[in-house]
Design a protein around this nucleic acid. Structure first.
Ligand SMILES: [Mn+2]
Ligand SMILES: [Mn+2]
Ligand SMILES: [Zn+2]
Ligand SMILES: [Zn+2]
Lengths: 153, 153
DNA sequence: TCCTTATTGATAATAATTCTCATTATCATT
DNA sequence: AATGATAATGAGAATTATTATCAATAAGGA
């Protein structure tokens, strides 16, 4: 069962409770840290583990974890929200290429040091200029994957 | 009435028709190039100009214009899609700060030359590495605006 | 003007997400 | 370990943004 002390502590601080359902949902997410889960996918798997879990609770939990910064919520344009664990041990922070032809999502993490450094500088500059406390960011490139680009001739 | 020759030509090429309704919707968007329109907002204004315009057509047109790259579609997390003209004469391409407290959206265009150049290099590198034809991109920073950050103490 | 067909408006249908409320489970305290 | 305040849950109804359907209309090439 999922037992991340950082998350647990964080919840306690906020007066929240670490319930079975929340642990199961975190478990589901942590088993495939590279996957872009829809709420329904999470519900189906969690429900298989514990059939008493309801759909509404999955939504509530995903919303909570997003607010806590434990997971990140994405919109890839297919009409449903997608979720990913933010602290996936290996994958860590990354961005996405979104194919508008077939919906394929490509993760990419290969930042150069230069890129990382520039992002940090940009964030700092924006924070100061707009008095805006930045918590996280999303970068998505839209276009056509190789398959979709080829078949278009 | 909106008469952008580039858009008109582009549509003709694709066998599309430049209709009254499409011109009115483009008009609405071009009148406030800095605004983040919801479909409903556009419908209301367009409908005031020509009460025969229907809601479904607004959605269809927004979808079409997005596919053509004339407008850009955004998700700022409030449950409805937002649209902006891409070729706003002055504003041009820009990114967003999204306040998760009150939903306020701040545009920012102030890229350094370094940033612009790096984005281009990154796009090129990604295109080659992943054989992915990039059409556009979205960058959003999430966090708290000044008002929301202050009142949190 | 005529003809082909892309487009439209009205409306029903769909589907993701949120709300309601009675019941249950968590956890600090005893 | 038992208690109690209340955060959390599940079931299902409700909401709401977006799509699909289909007969009627209008764009634009000839
Ligand atoms: Mn990812
Ligand atoms: Mn904007
Ligand atoms: Zn594709
Ligand atoms: Zn705010």
């Amino acid at each position: 069962m999922f037992g991340n002390p950082w998350i647990h502590k964080r919840m306690m601080q906020e007066g929240l409770r670490m319930t079975q359902t929340r642990m199961i949902i975190l478990d589901v997410l942590s088993k495939r840290p590279e996957h872009h889960f829809s709420a329904e996918e999470i519900f189906i798997i969690a429900h298989r583990i514990n059939p008493t879990i309801g759909f509404a609770t999955v939504y509530r939990t995903l919303d909570l974890l997003t607010r806590l910064g434990v997971i990140q919520k994405f919109d890839f344009g297919d009409g449903k929200a997608r979720y990913e664990l933010m602290m996936g041990n290996k994958i860590s922070h990354h961005h996405h290429l979104v194919c508008t032809g077939c919906g394929k999502i490509i993760d990419y993490t290969d930042f150069t040091d230069e890129e990382k450094e520039l992002m940090e500088r940009t964030e700092k500059a924006l924070s100061e200029k707009y008095k805006f406390k930045i918590k996280n960011h999303i970068i998505q490139f839209y276009g056509l994957c190789n398959d979709c680009n080829v078949e278009r001739r």
